[in-house]
């Protein structure tokens, strides 16, 4: 039974409600309006907003006569996207970028695991990891690219190196936190079952650290993605071996603005797709096990 509302200001001495049933309080007008929009499902609300923005974008381009050398409208960008994906111009760079990212993430993950194992196992390792992370993590890995090119030459090794570097430190931090915050009681249970060494790590510590691990991989991916695109922009390999960053730069040299936008949209879409993938993974594991705050049961 909702609490009775206060008598509205205005007409003085509002009559007392009749004994028995109270009248239902009326919603104020603003709440009614809000309830209308708010009642639509999330996807619909976002979709409508997105469509409205795209329409505004197209409207501006068509009406204001913006120079196509500077700015492209959604119709042209969509056309460029379709052409790029169907005809393959966008496919090869995308695959190149994803391949380099994947390689860098793999190396970074392995190193993160190794460093974390050392950090969790020994005091010296812990100090070393903390120091290195504090110094290197704040540095955008792209800034290391010129050095990497000197060390490894003008080839993909330099690119993979900076990606691995971008991924390594946030992952090591997350993994370390994950391992360190395994509840002592859970570990004690493992030990009381007679688990030791690797079995204890595999069956107890690793699964317990999963929320932090996934968060670490997710953060690592985010840094890695941004780094590879930026590195490709700086690196400038021509021809078939270039990635999405080079594709955008190349399109810019040739004043192909719709393709610049198409490249950007592709980058964003991949980012969104992978984010959704991570969310799905989390939902199937960490959320299902109630290992996150506010999880649905």
């Amino acid at each position: 039974m909702p609490p009775p509302t206060d008598a509205p200001a205005g007409p003085p001495a509002a009559p007392a409600p009749p004994a028995g049933r109270r009248p239902a309080p009326a919603l104020p007008r603003s709440a009614r309006r809000r309830a209308g929009w708010g009642r639509l499902p999330t996807a619909v609300r976002r979709g409508v907003l997105l469509a409205a923005l795209i329409a505004a974008w197209q409207g501006y381009v068509s009406a204001a006569g913006v120079s196509p050398l500077v700015f492209a409208g959604p119709a042209d960008v969509a056309a460029a996207l379709v052409a790029g994906w169907a005809g393959g111009d966008l496919v090869a760079p995308t695959l190149t970028t994803l391949r380099l990212l994947g390689l860098g993430m793999l190396i970074g993950s392995v190193l993160a695991l190794a460093l974390t194992a050392l950090a969790v196992g020994t005091r010296l390792g812990d100090d070393l990891l903390s120091l290195l992370t504090a110094m290197i993590n704040p540095l955008p890995s792209v800034a290391v690219l010129p050095l990497a090119m000197l060390w490894f030459g003008l080839n993909e090794t330099a690119l993979v190196f900076v990606v691995a570097n971008a991924v390594l430190w946030p992952m090591a931090v997350s993994l370390g936190t994950g391992f360190r915050t395994v509840p002592a009681t859970t570990v004690a249970v493992g030990r009381s079952l007679g688990l030791r060494g690797w079995r204890l790590v595999r069956d107890i510590r690793l699964p317990a650290a999963l929320p932090h691990t996934i968060a670490g991989v997710r953060t690592g991916w985010a840094f890695g993605w941004r780094t590879i695109i930026a590195a490709e922009l700086v690196f400038g390999v021509a021809g078939a071996r270039g990635g999405l960053g080079f594709y955008i730069n190349d399109a810019r040299y040739y004043l192909d603005i719709p393709n610049v936008f198409a490249g950007l949209v592709t980058i964003a879409l991949i980012g969104i797709a992978l984010d959704l993938l991570f969310t799905a993974v989390e939902r199937r594991t960490v959320v299902r096990w109630g290992m996150r705050e506010g999880a649905a049961t």
Binding site: P183, T186, V189, L193, G194, W289, M291
Partner: peptide, 17 residues
């Protein structure tokens, strides 16, 4: 070891996964 099985107070003693 399991010959002296322990029941703790905390709910962390169950494996959440």
């Amino acid at each position: 070891g399991p010959d002296r099985a322990v029941v703790f107070q905390e709910s962390d003693q169950l494996l959440p996964w």
